[in-house]
């Protein structure tokens, strides 16, 4: 058993702040946390400050805390707080930190988690700040990929759907730059990857191809699907056209062979047909389950001296 250095008391604001060694430490710890680890966090309190709606992130953090004997306080609706009286975010954080051992924050404004971390003496975990970062989603995506394939290095990973605005895509693609992964991007031209990120991936020699059709993306080991958001389209008829063109159905998935692993950060609307769900490679609900495991590991590393299994 070896201790995971560098996590205790640490803020988790951006996946970019984590080295490859950090990521591997976390994934190893999460494997160990698949089983019941007992009340490791008894007496610890997590504050969940959700300034905008969330289902999976909030509930999985709460579940992780409860499963380790800790407790949770917080709110899921900003309207029930003094923010409506004009309280600043910094003041809210300075007040909440004295009630808890760590804070999870989701906020519609980019950078809110960084600002919260600067004002908190307890660790702050970013549960999503606008379209910027959602680091624990990236951690659980990496964990799901490694758990399903047994590796990360050497994989061919495709990203399908909204490549331009999808923060889960950007964050996972950046994290995959730590590994020897070939990345393919599949989406409509108006939702292409932001130029800066595209250039970074290309400069690192990890950009395999950018295509508009799923059939042009073969072969792939992993396909990461994201929802195309209606509000991004000024012309509703264009959205309707793209919505049906960028949809993965069972026949489309099967053309990649039986080993394709399909991930989706959820919620899903129409981009993955329900007839895909019972394919063995359809991992999105397991991915959501893994969210609890990974968040258990992260909370334990941050709030206690978690011990890692020997590698």
């Amino acid at each position: 058993m070896s201790p995971a250095h560098g996590f205790r008391g640490r803020h988790v604001v951006s996946a970019d702040d984590f080295s490859k060694a950090d990521l591997l430490s976390l994934l190893d710890t999460a494997s160990y946390f698949e089983s019941d680890v007992g009340p490791r966090l008894a007496g610890k309190i997590l504050a969940t400050l959700f300034f905008e709606p969330s289902t999976r992130t909030r509930l999985s953090f709460e579940s992780a805390m409860h499963r380790m004997g800790g407790s949770v306080l917080g709110f899921a609706d900003e309207k029930a707080t003094s923010r409506t009286k004009g309280e600043s975010l910094a003041d809210t954080i300075r007040m909440v930190e004295s009630y808890c051992d760590a804070i999870v924050i989701r906020h519609p404004q980019e950078g809110a988690a960084r600002l919260a971390a600067e004002n908190a003496r307890v660790p702050v975990i970013n549960g999503g700040d606008g379209s910027n970062q959602h680091p624990t989603q990236t951690f659980l995506d990496l964990y799901t990929i490694r758990k399903a394939t047994g590796r990360i290095d050497g994989l061919k990973v495709g990203f399908f759907g909204d490549l331009r605005y999808g923060r889960a895509v950007h964050s996972l693609a950046k994290a995959l730059l730590h590994f020897d992964v070939e990345m393919t991007f599949i989406g409509p031209s108006m939702l292409r990857l932001p130029q800066e990120l595209r250039d970074t991936i290309q400069a690192r020699g990890r950009l395999s191809k950018e295509v508009e059709s799923l059939d042009d993306a073969k072969p792939l080991d992993v396909l990461y699907v994201t929802r195309i958001q209606k509000e991004r389209f000024p012309d509703p008829s264009e959205y309707e056209r793209i919505k049906y063109a960028y949809r993965l159905d069972r026949a489309g998935a099967e053309r990649f062979g039986p080993d394709l692993k399909i991930l989706h950060p959820l919620p899903r609307v129409t981009e993955v047909a329900t007839d895909v769900d019972d394919l063995p490679g359809a991992l999105y609900f397991e991915q959501a389950r893994n969210g609890v495991t990974v968040r258990k590991a992260l909370l334990s590393l941050i709030l206690s001296d978690a011990e890692l299994p020997a590698r």
Binding site: S88, A90, H107, Q109, E110, G111, R114, L115, D129, S131
Partner: peptide
Amino acid sequence: RCQNPTCVTNHERV
């Protein structure tokens, strides 16, 4: 100033 209208620096005292 940050040119991103939804950046927290355009909404909070920072």
